[in-house]
Simulated assay, not measured.
Amino acid sequence: MILESVLTCPQCGHVETETMPTDACQWFYECKGCGTLLKPKAGDCCVFCSYGTVKCPPVQESGHSCCEGNKS
Results as ranks from 00 to 15, higher is better:
1 M>L: 14
1 M>V: 10
1 M>C: 08
2 I>C: 02
2 I>W: 00
2 I>M: 03
2 I>R: 05
4 E>Y: 05
5 S>R: 01
5 S>T: 15
5 S>F: 07
6 V>T: 15
7 L>E: 02
7 L>T: 11
13 G>A: 08
14 H>I: 02
14 H>G: 02
15 V>Q: 15
15 V>D: 05
16 E>F: 05
16 E>I: 07
17 T>M: 12
19 T>K: 12
21 P>M: 12
21 P>H: 12
22 T>A: 10
24 A>H: 12
24 A>K: 15
25 C>N: 06
25 C>K: 11
26 Q>E: 14
26 Q>H: 09
27 W>E: 10
28 F>K: 14
29 Y>C: 00
30 E>D: 12
32 K>F: 04
34 C>S: 02
36 T>Q: 13
37 L>E: 02
38 L>W: 00
39 K>S: 15
41 K>E: 10
41 K>G: 01
41 K>F: 12
44 D>P: 00
44 D>C: 13
44 D>L: 03
44 D>T: 08
46 C>A: 07
48 F>H: 14
51 Y>E: 00
52 G>Q: 06
54 V>W: 00
54 V>S: 01
54 V>Y: 05
54 V>D: 01
54 V>T: 14
54 V>L: 03
56 C>V: 08
61 E>Y: 09
61 E>S: 12
62 S>V: 03
64 H>Y: 13
65 S>W: 02
66 C>G: 11
67 C>F: 00
67 C>Y: 07
68 E>S: 11
69 G>S: 03
70 N>T: 09
70 N>H: 10
71 K>Y: 15
72 S>L: 15
72 S>G: 14
